[in-house]
Design a binder for these strands. Sequence first.
RNA 1: GCGCAGAUGGCGGAGUGGUCAAUCGCAUCUGACUGUAAAUCAGACGCCUUCGGGCUACGUAGGUUCAAAUCCUACUCUGCGCACCA
Length: 405
Amino acid sequence: MKISEELAWRGFIQQTTLKDLTFLDDKKITFYHGFDASAPSQTVGNLAAMMIDLVFIKHGHKAIILAGGSTSLIGDPGGKDIERPMQSVKDISNNIKNAKKQISKIYGRRKFKLVNNLDWTKKINLLDFLRDTGKFFNVGELIKRDYIATRIGENGSGISFTEFSYTLLQGYDYLHLYDKYGCTLQLGGSDQWANCLSGVDLIRKKRNVETHVMTLPLIINKATGKKFGKSEAGAVWLDETKTSVFDFYQFWLNTDDESSKGYVKIFTEVEKLEYDALVTMADMDPSKRLTQKYLAYAVTALVHGKLHADQAKAQAEKMFSGDFSHIPDNQVFTVPPEYINGNEVKLIEFVTDKKIIESKGKFRELLSSKGLFIDGTPLESTSFTKTKSEHIFQVGKKRFYKLKF
RNA sequence: GCGCAGAUGGCGGAGUGGUCAAUCGCAUCUGACUGUAAAUCAGACGCCUUCGGGCUACGUAGGUUCAAAUCCUACUCUGCGCACCA
């Protein structure tokens, strides 16, 4: 499959300045793709953006992955209706470190160049910047942009000059990468469209060269129409210390039938033939959850490695067939003696102290709606009598913890 | 700088002296039904509780009052208008 066909088939294109994608089939170009570093880890939302890079790399295009060291210091106003709190330089540099690690892991042995825009923006002199770059941006046009307009409009919360400048810096990045590496295409999320175009304009005005932008659609859950990337516990992170491999696997496994098909195309490197076969099989008996299983395994393997994916898969199969012998380590707790009185375990104390359940009120609430279980039988009170050295504590249908004594 | 309007729980948005831990919608959690799905239905949704109640909260700090999210003063932030500047 040619790249133009593959991009269309996977549903990767939202908007692009390229009139004819087949251009990419023959000519190999250099493209760049920026990652925000304002969070300590990338999330599954960012993963979609990485997958499109993999397609480009597979087809022989040169990748530059940009970590947004300087732009994160400023904060992207896009998609936010209030000013972002400023983050410390130290936090950002830690975030960059994490982001680099995650990106390297996912991109594996594929060739790509990793850059940090802080390396060139920190050297910029203010006057030079205003004269050489600022001069090419028309404020009248900038304030017409949706995300800025809503911020300064009637009920907006305003925008500081700092965030207002974000798009200039991003434009400058593109120019820099064009000059230094001959980069002529920028990939980004759909929310980045306007910011990406800043660079295109700047390069046209300064270098008289036409460069391009391609954005990928915002991924939404087809069944619910909601934005993608949240689990019961909040955002799904790529960092295993923030979202365990097991939870990560479960997140994908719990996707609904309709969405899972689209996700397979986006988040895995499945080939079309294999995909068609998979979907046909899955449709014959949806209760087998074939697409979900394929998806969960493939994505987990990509992000956390095959070994971890195998473990998560095995754990899932065991756990939901009633075998709790393989609960992941971070869900195994040893209960200290102060929580135990004879054989009576003060569960409510322990479980709230460990933040397994956020508050005692919440615990009582779950208790009264029969959402707590010990070894599969509903819990009746705030404590229980231990009968062996290990018990399985269950919250809802999907959260399991092993308690050791 | 002057004037006007606004700031309420994760979000949107009611409430304009007591019955307000605050209507409602969204999001979230739990249960039922199922397929670890979706849809639907039911319940919960500040913290603590011996389930009687206690505590902390409606931008921040004071004040009036028996009683304040609600009234007053100052401050902070935001929007709008005017002025200044050009």
